[in-house]
Simulated scan of single mutants.
Amino acid sequence: MEKMLKEILSELREVKAKVTKLEGGQEEIKGDVKDLKQMTKAIFNQTADLTEFRTETNEKLDTVISDIKTMHEDIVAVEYISSKNMNDIAKLKLIK
């Protein structure tokens, strides 16, 4: 009987050691989950910042494109007027 009690006690000690080890592992996992939550939050914030930056950049790029188109139209108009003026100057020179 005493031998059996010693075996049971030994088994209980092994189970207790395993439970203690499992509890330690569980605490480690909790710490990892906490770290992952913080990293996820940081990634979320960075993504939001990048999305905002992209939107602002696209708006500015649209403005630049619009300005370039306007300048192109102005250059075409200046070229047309210059051409017309050159023709008028040539006519005036012929009249002299």
Rank of each mutant, 00 (worst) to 15 (best):
M1P: 06
M1G: 14
K3Q: 10
K3L: 14
L5A: 14
L5Q: 14
L5T: 13
S10K: 09
E14W: 07
K16Q: 15
K16C: 09
V19C: 15
V19P: 10
T20M: 14
L22T: 13
G24M: 04
E27T: 00
I29K: 11
K30R: 08
V33K: 05
D35H: 08
L36E: 07
K37Q: 14
K37G: 09
M39Y: 08
M39N: 12
T40H: 05
K41T: 05
A42N: 07
A42S: 12
I43T: 02
F44Y: 13
N45D: 15
N45M: 11
L50A: 03
L50W: 05
R54M: 07
R54G: 06
E56H: 02
T57C: 03
K60S: 03
L61I: 14
L61W: 06
D62C: 04
T63H: 05
V64H: 00
D67A: 03
I68P: 00
M71V: 01
H72N: 06
H72D: 10
I75A: 04
V78Q: 09
E79I: 02
I81G: 04
I81V: 08
S82W: 02
S83L: 09
D88R: 07
D88F: 04
A90E: 07
K91S: 07
K93G: 01
I95K: 11
K96F: 09
K96N: 08
